[in-house]
């Protein structure tokens, strides 16, 4: 078994700064279940970052990850080419999503969150639920995975912040719209930026609809060893990496998490600046 140096088999540009990588990691492809993630370290001097798995193919021995270039490591990964290898990938990590047949569910995705939302929606559909997907983006250029999401959904509604496509506004507006139909919604899964997951959770709490969110905390080891990813859920401290990443959205202290996500903003900027200054010269 190979546990170091994983080959990139396919790379695809999905949207501005959003890229897909299909990587050969047979042992993870075999074990992955919706809701789980991997930790990746690109090379010897790299940091460990958590990335969600969007697709897996056990026969082919591959997993697919989708990244958005927001900092040094994602920018560096974004430059990697097919055939190159990633030094370390650990996984699958986290607790698989507890998906059962419940009736009608809303799968709400914002921005990059659509990638990890896809396996959840797929599983919801497979076990016999009616799936309504609500997908939001900044602008129409940022939509991706449309075909995939539509394939596993009974209905898909879109929104854009700038009104360039679909509803002009936020995914929360789409939720209100669906709730207005008086159809009983049993569960909501929301994945996206923290403010979006917070807004969705606040809205569904009013309507008393069970809501799961998938948190993307800052992690180091991602095996429960350091507590860097800790988050307050229902007044108790939980580690996102081993107790999550899925949690009851009505119990998560989003305000605390939003502040904790900014812990290394200054350092992240320095790292990106250093990286860009070396790569533009080359």
């Amino acid at each position: 078994m190979q546990t170091k140096h994983f080959k990139i088999l396919k790379k695809e540009n999905l949207a501005p700064q959003i890229k897909l990588f299909r990587i050969r990691v047979p042992h993870i492809a075999l074990k992955f279940q919706a809701g789980q993630f991997v930790v990746v370290r690109l090379n010897e001097t790299g940091e460990r970052i958590p990335l969600t798995i969007a697709e897996h193919n056990p026969e082919e021995g591959t997993i697919t990850i989708v990244i958005q270039e927001v900092g040094k490591t994602t920018a560096q990964l974004g430059k990697m080419k097919e055939g190159e290898t990633i030094e370390d990938i650990l996984g699958p990590l986290g607790i698989p999503s507890p998906i059962k047949k419940v009736g009608t569910v809303l799968c709400v995705g914002g921005g990059l969150g659509v990638a990890p939302l896809y396996p959840e929606a797929k599983k919801y559909k497979e076990v016999g639920n009616k799936v309504i997907s609500l997908i939001g983006a900044k602008s129409k250029n940022f939509f991706f995975f449309k075909e995939r999401i539509e394939r596993v959904s009974d209905e898909v509604l879109y929104s854009t912040d700038d009104g360039s496509s679909g509803h002009h506004g936020f995914v929360t507006d789409l939720i209100k719209k669906v709730l207005g139909r008086k159809e009983k919604i049993e569960e909501v899964i929301a994945i996206g930026p923290l403010p979006m997951m917070k807004a969705v959770s606040e809205l569904t709490k009013k309507h008393d609809i069970e809501t799961r969110v998938s948190l993307n905390s800052i992690m180091v080891d991602a095996t429960g060893m350091c507590g860097g990813c800790r988050v307050t859920v229902g007044g108790k401290v939980k580690f996102t990496c081993v107790d999550g990443p899925g949690f009851d959205g009505h119990k998560v202290d989003f305000d605390e998490l939003i502040l904790r996500q900014k812990r290394f903003v200054r350092e992240e900027k320095i790292a990106l600046k250093c990286y860009l200054s070396t790569t533009t010269e080359a």
Partner: peptide, 19 residues
Amino acid sequence: TRVNLMKAYQFPKYDTPVK
């Protein structure tokens, strides 16, 4: 872990920060 395993004391040569 940040300092010893990830060598954050050599940031930004190594990517992991420590504050």
